[in-house]
Design a protein around this nucleic acid. Sequence first.
DNA 1: GCGGGCCTCCCCATTTTGGGGGAAGATGAA
DNA 2: TTCATCTTCCCCCAAAATGGGGAGGCCCGC
Lengths: 254, 254
Amino acid sequence: MRRFLLRLTTTVRDLMAKKVDLDGILEDLDATTTHEGLQQITERVRDAFGIDHIVYHWVDSAGEQYGVGTYDDVWVQRYLEQGYLRTDPVIIGCYQRFHPVDWKRLDWSTRSARIFLKDALAHGVGNQGYSIPIRGPNGQFALFTVNHNCEDEEWAEFTDDHSRELILMAHYFNRKALEFEPDRGPEKAQTLSPREIDALTLLAIGYSRAQVAQTLSISEHTLRVYIESARFKLGALNTTHAIARALSCGLIVV
Amino acid sequence: MRRFLLRLTTTVRDLMAKKVDLDGILEDLDATTTHEGLQQITERVRDAFGIDHIVYHWVDSAGEQYGVGTYDDVWVQRYLEQGYLRTDPVIIGCYQRFHPVDWKRLDWSTRSARIFLKDALAHGVGNQGYSIPIRGPNGQFALFTVNHNCEDEEWAEFTDDHSRELILMAHYFNRKALEFEPDRGPEKAQTLSPREIDALTLLAIGYSRAQVAQTLSISEHTLRVYIESARFKLGALNTTHAIARALSCGLIVV
DNA sequence: GCGGGCCTCCCCATTTTGGGGGAAGATGAA
DNA sequence: TTCATCTTCCCCCAAAATGGGGAGGCCCGC
């Protein structure tokens, strides 16, 4: 009997899961051209999935950021004002992860995390959550989060059923966000000569000029020409700056 | 008549598209516990999609990397030996992008790109390709690529039909690869203090120590303490190295 | 075949960094 | 409370990096 029930609920759950019109959502997402449109889609997705909130937002050392979602404005304001970006365990935890993570698996033990949690719950954030980290070149980082107020089992079922849809939606939201904020896109890449790349790469891994010169079997004077040339091309003020720019632009990899 | 044919092929295509048993593939992918198993799945995916090749691989400056795919061993060897990691336009292009990209949109105009292309085609790599960049914390970067030998229209159809499946597979392959190579997982998260971040960030944008000290309104001696402390934490040999590591690890953003 | 980028080599004076010390208060976690 | 971390300040001096010159050969594309 128990097994039968289990099978039954599974079937019902599957039927429910199928009801989410993912294709329709993704197509509309693709067709959206405004921030408001995206905002509306978040509400639609929330309703389609039958959960309390979905949110997509940039995370960024500076304050400037982009976000859409179904959170209350009061909470968004408070989040920013309180600088929760720095203490939010979801962000801290996701920042070090590759994969989607259930909030239960994060570290909520620090004092600041507990303060944050209490405040979040008070503002309507669900006790259950699931966040997907999204990364881009130059360290860009964004989060796509769904959350809800329910028991563990129900939530586990939900995330099991919808993890794939959520991954896809995260991608599509991210794509849109980038469209709306074109500045975030990569800059035009300068081309460095092979020797310049060699030189900067070795410098970036901590070699001194003498070591680099020896490694490349060239004189230190020659090496300097490369470095200066690279600096010039990158519009860098000094070697460190050149390395930083080359790394940011993906011209070298460490 | 033409429209009819178009509609017919579209329908057939839709049917074909549906035939790919994505759920089955993803489940098996999830259940795989060995590199060999993953390798076999790549072949299965290739056949299921009816294309020439699929490949998942890490990209990193060092030679050590992880990869599975359907490429010929000879080509893989050659790729590594020739250091194509540095010249492959797919890698260079994807490194700067957020989103999946069709190979046609990459820059194949440089000399080294043309040399690479010729060599690749000679080794059975398709003339059409589609690559999905995948990123993790600390600058980890991987690529999931499908490629095939066919006309532009056919390829455009294929990528249109399957972009979502491909995104999901990229995710799942990445997850598995991380399981097999746990070392790649996030290293112990180095935390830099706010002042250290300030210091490294300003250095990374080309300021000299004197300028940084002035900007932060601290003595240059104090600044040095931060830099040295950051260097120590990052295991860096010098300031430039520290900047490079901090950037790679996403601890600072320029 | 010519201009332009690339690779290689050299000097010298000045500026910037690095390494070795040591020390204080403030904050927050175990 | 105690310990750890963060922040701030100071000394001296050697080693390394930088800036600004100049110069020749090679290879590529226009």
